[in-house]
Design a protein around this nucleic acid. Structure first.
Length: 254
DNA sequence: GCCCAGGAGCATA
DNA sequence: TATGCTCATGGG
């Protein structure tokens, strides 16, 4: 059965125009951050690598996948603490942070190390399942196989595929939905368009350059944190206000 | 104390 | 298919 994405494609606003404006505003974001390599040439102190084309190692890819699960509905600052704890734990054992290391420990012990990420019991289980999948991984994972894993949904799968394997899957997250619902007036809440419809809408407007996909998603996260915030959006200083449909009611009431 | 954060799975109707 | 609930820590 063919999906009906036509309502979204009728939207006048082109995602690519938003991408250009955000890139002018903030510059390249250097995603996905790799904490293991923080401070190395080309990486800043938090592991971001703006403007650098990074050659990823097996350990890098696994760290990205771990982070993608840990950051589910959770701020990155909390995730960074968990990743730091995991790394120092295995550093002391002189073991690289690879799937075998995760599988070699008790789930409760793992949960304790990642407490700061929240939902830590669920996420410990997710990380072990993910690790099992990674142990017999020979090539780029298939999206459908990732989605069959307990704890891996579309956003997490696409984040892993895009940032760890350079595959052109555009990531739709809560920031993306919020920003574009304000820009275009598309409905939110239970009436939010499906993940696949939104992904199709963005993909049609972008070239299949994974750098563009990765940069755009990172810029949307940055913009959602700093400007297009949930509670008190800073519409005055927003670089998208000329093309935005959103009416900041809290401002009108003043 | 409140709200929010780089989701996903499951029960119920 | 759709809605509602659960999972949980940490920062503003």
């Amino acid at each position: 059965m063919e999906q009906d994405n036509s309502n979204l494609l009728n939207i006048r606003l082109r995602p690519f125009d938003v991408f250009r404006t955000l890139l002018e505003t903030y510059g390249p974001q250097g995603w996905w951050p790799i904490l293991r390599r923080a401070g190395e040439p080309g990486f800043n102190e938090e592991g971001y690598h703006p403007g650098q084309k990074i050659r990823l190692t097996e350990i890098d890819r696994f760290e990205i996948a771990l982070g993608a699960v840990l950051t589910q509905n959770t701020s990155w600052s909390n995730v960074r603490m968990s990743l730091g704890r995991l790394m120092s734990f295995f550093d002391k054992k002189n073991m690289p942070l690879l799937p075998e290391a995760i599988l070699g420990m008790e789930e409760a012990e793992l949960a304790n190390l990642i407490r700061s990420s929240g939902y830590y019991r669920q996420k410990a289980r997710k990380l072990r399942i993910l690790s099992g999948f990674f142990t017999n991984l020979k090539a780029v994972p298939e999206r459908a196989k990732l989605l069959k894993l307990w704890g891996i949904g579309p956003e997490t799968a696409d984040s892993i595929l895009l940032y760890a394997w350079d595959q052109p899957f555009f990531v739709i997250d809560a920031y993306t939905v919020r920003i574009f619902s304000r820009l275009t007036g598309i409905s939110t809440g239970s009436r939010t368009p499906s993940y696949e419809d939104l992904q199709y809408y963005f993909s049609k407007s972008l070239k299949k350059y994974t750098v563009e996909y990765g940069e755009f998603h990172a810029l949307l996260v940055r913009h959602g944190k700093e400007s297009c915030r949930a509670g008190d959006p800073k519409c005055e200083e927003c670089s998208l206000k000329k093309i935005c449909n959103y009416v900041d009611k809290s401002n009108l009431l003043r």
